[in-house]
């Protein structure tokens, strides 16, 4: 905990001092800007397994360094982003991806919010209908005092 706080404070200080954006910490021998951008972009989509709320680009964990090196070498070996992601998913599960893929195991994750909104909408419509019906029957009751009131609640 203390280390994490220290880490954050240090990073904030460094950020304030140098005004730089967060970058993968260890210098990798990128051949050009495009390669670096691709690497940073990829590393930001991957989760560090050690500090699990950080992405690979951000983490100073030792394993994150190794994984960055691995990603870099695979890029150099001509692998596509998808291949690199597959490589990591095969070892560390979908959990390494910040954007979880849509598949039966993640349906709950993806669809629960929509299901809740739908449920809310259904409830809302039902309540509004009932109110409208109640208002109508009330008006009818007032208009024709002898009419039977058919309140259903």
């Amino acid at each position: 905990m203390m280390r994490r706080v220290l880490c954050i404070v240090t990073m904030m200080l460094a950020g304030a001092l140098f005004g730089s954006t967060a970058h993968a910490i260890d210098p990798l021998p990128f051949k050009d800007r495009a390669e670096e951008v691709r690497f940073q972009n990829l590393a930001r989509q991957l989760r560090c397994l050690v500090c699990q709320n950080q992405d690979l680009a951000d983490s100073d964990a030792d394993l994150a360094k190794d994984l960055r090196k691995q990603v870099f070498e695979m890029m150099r070996a001509g692998k596509s982003d998808a291949e690199i992601k597959d490589f990591l998913v095969a070892r560390y599960n979908d959990f390494v991806l910040y954007d979880p893929p849509l598949k039966p195991g993640t349906w709950l994750l993806w669809f629960t919010p929509f299901a809740l909104v739908a449920l809310g909408a259904i409830a809302l419509v039902r309540i509004l209908r009932r109110r409208a019906r109640a208002a109508v029957s009330e008006a009818l009751a007032r208009g024709t005092p002898n009419d039977n009131r058919d309140d259903d609640w």
């Binding site: 397994l49 050690v50 394993l63 190794d66 994984l67 691995q70 070892r91 560390y92 599960n93």
Partner: peptide
Amino acid sequence: ADGRTGIDFGVYM
């Protein structure tokens, strides 16, 4: 020592 095999095994701690 370099942790490569560990990565292949999906070791993270």
